[in-house]
Design a protein around this nucleic acid. Structure first.
Lengths: 192, 192
DNA sequence: TATTGTTATACTCTATAACTATA
DNA sequence: TATAGTTATAGAGTATAACAATA
């Protein structure tokens, strides 16, 4: 158990991540809104996802995803394919152009990080990733506290039945090791 | 030098910090706007700071700080004391109430983190903090790239002269180990 | 009746530029 | 003339609630 000072220190350091990411995004070699770009990385990591799943992964409301995906569609970087098993839902899929864009984004980030991480060992880098992943996993598993009805819950309540995402497509993108969703109140409504 | 895959992995993990902080802030036992609350932590860490210094530390425009500080003032959590050495500038100082609030915020964060970090050793926690601090330091020291005129610059150009902040007050809050500012274009104007 | 996703709307946060007052 | 901070304004990003379509 970490001391109060250690916790505060960690919190301050975590807070500093935000302006770093902001600067990274700002300097991206693209124009237009930035907010939806993160979805590209999620889609490449996890494969095709439904709108609601994207919302969960990103920790934002579904209505926000609707806009971001519409934006990505307009740019030709993502497309929506109907879910043959459920006429209400869509799967979002990266286009070939979208793949190219996420590759460029990764390359750009790497150019910046390459300088920053110049004197890091591979072990340092993977250790930081590992600790952050562990932090996230622990955070998502934190219990509900009374008086705060909009909290996450542990467990994997997302897939509501057996079977594969659509037809005999790829396996559920939710195998372990992947980040757990940070549910919004909107999403929680469907769970409680 | 980390591999492309390692970079991408790290980037994804860093991205996950954002929704965690969002959830943490959202559940804070306070009402009203959240954005200015981060200043309280900065002020306790660094002592009294000028508006512009707060902007640099936070990586946002001065005009944003004006609003946040005004908000904190209205809540009675911060006050502005004139700088006797420069009639144009102000120092922002935590009030006793502000100290109490930041204590409560830290305690709240600790309650949440205590669960998350339950099975972490102290070494794990401090290691994560250390790596994040190192990342931030390296990031702030990254060189300017051509075609992107709005980048940070290394060095410590903030204190524009010898002497203490105001009168014979506390030492400059910028001794080493503290986070380097992420300058905005607005702030950069004053540097180039 | 419940759920997926959309739309209308409003709120939060932010940057830009024009402004003031001091230096 | 330059700088510290403010204000007016606009834009990005988000959440909430009401809604349509499907289960």
């Amino acid at each position: 158990m970490a001391s109060e000072a250690d916790c505060e220190e960690l919190l301050a350091r975590l807070g500093e991540v935000v302006p770093m990411l902001k600067a990274l995004k700002r300097d991206l070699p693209f124009t237009g809104p930035r907010a939806g770009l993160g979805l590209l990385a999620v889609l490449r990591r996890q494969g095709d996802l439904r709108m609601g799943e994207l919302a969960e992964c990103s920790g934002v409301d579904q209505s926000v995803i609707t806009r971001h995906v519409a934006d990505l569609q307009e740019r030709g970087w993502a497309e929506r394919v109907p879910n043959p098993r459920d006429g209400r839902s869509w799967y979002v899929r990266l286009t070939a152009d979208g793949e190219r864009v996420i590759d460029e984004m990764a390359a750009h980030a790497r150019r910046v990080l390459a300088v920053t991480l110049d004197d890091w060992t591979d072990q340092d880098v993977t250790e930081l990733s590992r600790l952050l992943a562990r932090l996230r996993a622990g955070f998502d598993a934190r219990p509900v506290r009374p008086g705060h009805p909009h909290h996450d819950r542990p467990g994997h309540p997302r897939r509501d039945g057996p079977g594969h995402p659509y037809l005999d497509g790829p396996a559920p993108p939710d195998e372990d090791g992947s980040p757990r969703p940070l549910r919004t109140s909107q999403t929680l409504k469907g769970i409680r």
